[in-house]
Design a protein around this nucleic acid. Structure first.
Lengths: 155, 155
DNA sequence: GTTCTTGCAAACCCTTTGCACGTCT
DNA sequence: AGACGTGCAAAGGGTTTGCAAGAAC
């Protein structure tokens, strides 16, 4: 994977957002975004906390949560909330947007990409007078094939 | 609105599910479904708890949570998780399935119905070897019109 | 210098759990 | 009778908050 050439752009976008909202451009906020750019995956607040403090960055959980919140608000991060799990984040630019199908019997999660959804999202948002940013779709379903679904014991 | 003629059908569906899974058909589980059928709206576990105990039903939070879980598993209820809020439920048959658009600036939530999504859901699920049950789509967007978005102070 | 942010720990909320008692089969 | 479900209160996990110290403006 490329060493994220867009990191500079993301940092601009973030600074710009902070300025616009009259929030301060602190070292901690900058560091958090830097470290996130190094992670090529979903992550939780606590995972980021442990990662940063393992790298020598000293950041508190309070700051992590607060900064993740800002980054989500300005659409640099996307926030996912699966089932009962803690919130997970990823760079909005990280990969083509994907959605999730969850088996209600065994909890298995399958990622998929379906471009048609983007069109519907944009059309719906505009129709309601909004500017679309992103979406999060979860499909709930059960396996057809009992052998691939660990909990399909009955039937 | 009709006095939910489907309640009998839902109760059958629930009993059937309990039998299939070898769970017991208890008075409490039956009561919970009865009271839910009276609510024509989204509700949280605690709202249901307060409602039932206000009506004279004596049900513990533990039972509420456990029964909501069962009802969601057998697809009588749909479970929503908006932003940082507590889980909300509604009868899956309550109304044509609707999804939600959330303004990332002010948090406003708009419900909408878009039939095309159902087709995509079914097609995706089948393509992956699953039997589709339901879906949950959230669109994140910002208001075009500053006057309708309480937090659109800048720009 | 003032205001906002940080860090820490405690508080918080929603949800789950352990255990004794009650209920379904 | 036996196994499972219920109720209570306490524990749990993730997230937020109050306050004092520190950094940005």
């Amino acid at each position: 994977m490329p060493p994220t050439p867009e990191i500079a752009e993301l940092k601009n976008q973030f600074s710009e957002y902070l300025r616009r909202k009259k929030y301060r451009n602190t070292q901690e906020r900058s560091n958090v975004l830097d470290r996130i750019a190094e992670i090529d995956d979903h992550f939780s607040a606590d995972e980021l906390y442990l990662y940063m403090n393992g790298q020598g960055d000293k950041v508190s959980r309070a700051t992590i949560y607060s900064t993740l919140d800002l980054l989500t608000q300005c659409n640099i991060l996307t926030k996912h909330r699966f089932q009962g799990e803690s919130a997970h984040f990823e760079l909005a630019t990280r990969m083509p947007h994907h959605d999730h199908l969850i088996c209600t019997e065994c909890g298995r999660i399958v990622e998929f990409r379906e471009e048609a959804i983007d069109g519907i999202r944009d059309q719906v948002a505009k129709g309601l007078g909004f500017r679309p940013l992103s979406h999060s779709l979860q499909i709930h379903a059960v396996c057809h094939d009992p052998t691939t679904c660990e909990h399909n014991t009955s039937d």
